[in-house]
């Protein structure tokens, strides 16, 4: 007489099928979640790089200098950098706000959490008589799931 119920083999097969289906399925979900969060970081890095690229156009040519890796943090950034001071709704210098825990807690924690930083890689060619052109590589780095990410944007800035 056969024994009633499923055989061990059947159980093993069904469990493996369940595992094979569910684990990637779960990964799929977490990947989606990750993708959205990654996208947020990517978009932010993108706009941070753009902010720098635009400011490079307006700043004095000689002030465009190399910022070596690991770079300057976007939060608690030193004065007169690309991200400090950040806001100022008052009429005087004293009202200026920086990206600090005290001034902008939420924005600050987002930047700190991912350790957003910027670096500049500057190549300068001089054609003589003050006629120069710089190629500036804007490197935004951040940390994401223990992975070091980088966003690169290149821009030409001519001397005036």
């Amino acid at each position: 007489m056969k024994k009633s119920g499923m055989s061990l083999l059947e159980i093993v097969i069904s469990i493996s099928i369940a595992v094979v289906i569910f684990i990637p399925a779960m990964n799929m979900f977490s990947t989606t979640g990750q993708a959205v969060f990654k996208t947020r970081n990517f978009s932010f890095a993108n706009s941070a790089a753009r902010r720098i690229s635009q400011r490079l156009m307006a700043m004095p040519y000689e002030d465009i200098v190399e910022v070596p890796l690991p770079g300057i943090a976007l939060f608690d950034a030193p004065a007169e950098s690309f991200f400090a001071p950040f806001l100022n709704t008052s009429g005087t210098n004293s009202g200026a706000k920086n990206i600090t825990q005290a001034d902008m807690p939420e924005f600050y924690s987002y930047l700190v959490q991912h350790d957003f930083r910027y670096s500049l890689s500057v190549s300068n060619v001089s054609f003589g008589d003050g006629d120069e052109i710089k190629s500036v590589g804007i490197l935004i780095t951040w940390s994401e799931n223990n992975k070091n990410m980088m966003y690169r944007l290149y821009v030409y800035v001519p001397s005036l």
Partner: peptide, 26 residues
Amino acid sequence: LYMLSQLGTSQTKLAFKYHENLLTET
């Protein structure tokens, strides 16, 4: 799951499109 994965992909696509937009401009 398919819907969720689409969401992730579409977000990435949108982000990339915007990135390409900005990159062309720069």
